Each structure stands twice: as C-alpha cells, then as structure tokens.
Computed example of a mutant assay.
Amino acid sequence: MQVMPAVQSLADRLAVRTGRHDLRSRWFGTGRTVMALAQLSVLLFAPVKALLVPVVGMGEYPKCDGVRAASALCLGGDTVGMEPRRWLLIVILAVVASGYRPRWTAIPHAWAAYSVAVSIAVPDGGESVGMIMALLMIPVGLADDRTWHWRRPEREARPSWRTLSFVAFLAMRVQIAYLYLDSAIAKFGVADWANGTAEYYFLRDSMFGVARPWDSFFLWLSKNSLIVVALTWGALVIEIAIGVCLLASERWRKAGMVMDVVLHGSIILTMGLWSFALVMIGSAIVCASPDRRRPVTGDPGAGGDEGALPESGVHCAECGAAVRVVTAV
C-alpha cells in the first residue's frame, strides 16, 4: 500500500522542520515590535473622543455587550474613566514594543490588540489584522523564555513548545497570505481596478487622497494614463506576489517582506494610514522569520544557542552526509 510510506515521509519531513524550528530571533522580535508600535500609535496620537465617536445607526462606543465586555476599554464599568483604560493599554503595548519578557507579555498583548479592535468606532482594518496576529503569536510568545526578544536564546526550546510555535507560524503565514491574495483577487471584480484607473481616484479622494508635500508631484504623475495603469495594476501584482511568497521558502518569504515594505511604504508616503501599514509590515517581517540553524537532535534542556557556541562538522556514517553539531564548551 502506497499511502503509509507517503504519510511516513510527510511525518518525517515535518519532524525535521519542527526539530529545527525556533522563532526566538530578532526577526520575530522586530515584527512584534513594529506591530505593537502601530497599535500604540492609535492610542497615543488619537484622542479618545475620536476613537469612540458615536456612529449613526450604531450608537455609543465602546460596545460592552457579549464577548466585547472583555475589552480593556470596558474595564470597571461606569466607575472607571476612559483615560485610565487608555493608559493601561498604552503601558501594555509600550512594554511589548520594548521586547521585554515575550512569555509574560504575549497574552496581555493579545488582550490589548483585542480591546482596540473591538472597541473603537472607526477601525481601518489594521486593528483586526493586529488582533489576529497577536492571538496567533501567543504560542510563539509562550515558547520564548528570553528576557528581551532582541537577545539570542540561551538554551533550546522543548520539543512541545517548538511544535506549537511551528503550527502558529504556519497559521500566521497562511492568514497573511490569504489577506493579500483575497484582497487582490477581489479587486479584479471592481471596475476601476479592472480597467486600471483606481489609483487616479484614490489620489484625489477627499479623505484618503495624497497629502502634502507630495500632492503636487503625484497628482501631476497621475495625469499620465500609462502611469496610472501601472500604479493600479502594479499594486495588484505586488499583492499577489506577496501572498505567494509568504507561503514559500525562506528566501521567497524575505522577498515577499521586501515587497510588502515597498507597497505599504508607498501607501504611507501618499495616503498616510500609518497604523495599518505598520501592522502589515510587522506581520510580513514575522512571516519572513527564518528558521534558526540549530541541531535537530540532542537534549532539549541541555543544549545552547547555536549562534553562541562553536560548531564542528561530523560525518554521518549511516546517512553519508555531513551534519553539524554543537560542541559543548
């Protein structure tokens, strides 16, 4: 029967990938910090009245019914003012952005991201992405025992934590890739995107249009039909490319991250949307995180960081290949 060998082969490959997987790196720390700073900027630079402005047909904010009652902006009911709640979230996100104790701050980060996403009246989409990413990063954070997420790990993670982290990492990549692919494919059903004129109208939009000091330059560029078509369809091509790359190998994930920075950097330059752009850039950095080169076998509790210990090449007599091992010092 051919099914069992195939299943066994897949299991072996997953075991190897899980065995070398370790997101405790500066890549993951940088992406996490960028996302926290994006969420922090919403609370720091927008007054509470603007975030919780009443919406016609929706009533007052924050909504504290059902599961939304778990939001920090609903904490304490009417006995607690909105400013103390806001500053509680600011402190949490500031600690997360600093990189201190990922294991301790993973769940508070998810709570803060959830609070912002479900409670403010006029989210721009970045809040929801930040919330989903913060929830998916909980297993990765709990597996990270470093004091600061800028440091190299001092010992190997246990196999159970590596497995949970690996599954969460795959989920994050699939989620962000889906967002980009779905966004690009859906735009083909909109006439202005399909005919290549969408950027012309976006740049002139009264709310999200190009702002100073670049307005004159980009409005002048958009008078050229070829440039408008290139900008419009180019955005769709880049979105598709990012989605595909984030599902591929390490090298392609890094290429996807670079394209993501270019795409959202351009959006910041022309339209603003800082918090949304930074959340997406931070998510791409996390998804592009490479596997640390670490030994597949050995005592999970006794090893050291491969980047901190000398290595030596050993020839494997059974497999006929050279493998790397960590030499204890």
Rank of each mutant, 00 (worst) to 15 (best):
D192K: 06
V326N: 14
V34F: 13
L142S: 12
V258L: 08
A186Q: 15
D299C: 02
A321M: 09
A46Y: 07
E154R: 05
V244N: 07
L43E: 13
K49T: 15
A277T: 15
G243A: 09
A194S: 14
K254T: 01
G126I: 02
L88E: 09
A168D: 15
V122Y: 13
R152E: 12
E306M: 06
A317K: 07
T33N: 06
M271K: 08
C64V: 03
N224Y: 10
G265W: 01
K187S: 05
A38S: 14
V228N: 13
L226S: 07
G209R: 06
L52V: 07
A46V: 10
T297Y: 04
D22L: 02
Y180F: 13
M280I: 13
W27H: 13
P213V: 12
R20A: 00
W87S: 01
A94W: 07
A277G: 15
F45V: 08
P213F: 03
R85W: 04
S98L: 09
P108I: 04
P47C: 10
T327W: 11
R292C: 02
A69T: 10
E239N: 06
R253G: 06
S183F: 11
P54D: 05
C319A: 09
F166I: 02
C319L: 08
C64R: 08
V116C: 08
M207T: 15
P54Q: 04
A322M: 14
M35I: 15
T270M: 12
M58V: 00
W274I: 06
L88S: 11
I242A: 04
S225E: 14
Y200S: 09
V262F: 10
A284R: 07
M35G: 14
G307T: 12
T270P: 05
D78E: 05
V34G: 15
A230K: 00
G243Q: 11
V174F: 10
V167Y: 06
L14A: 03
D124T: 13
I238C: 11
V55S: 03
W148I: 01
S160P: 01
I176F: 14
A308G: 01
L23A: 15
W111G: 08
L51I: 04
E306I: 01
V296N: 02
A69N: 14
W193S: 08
G298D: 01
S275G: 10
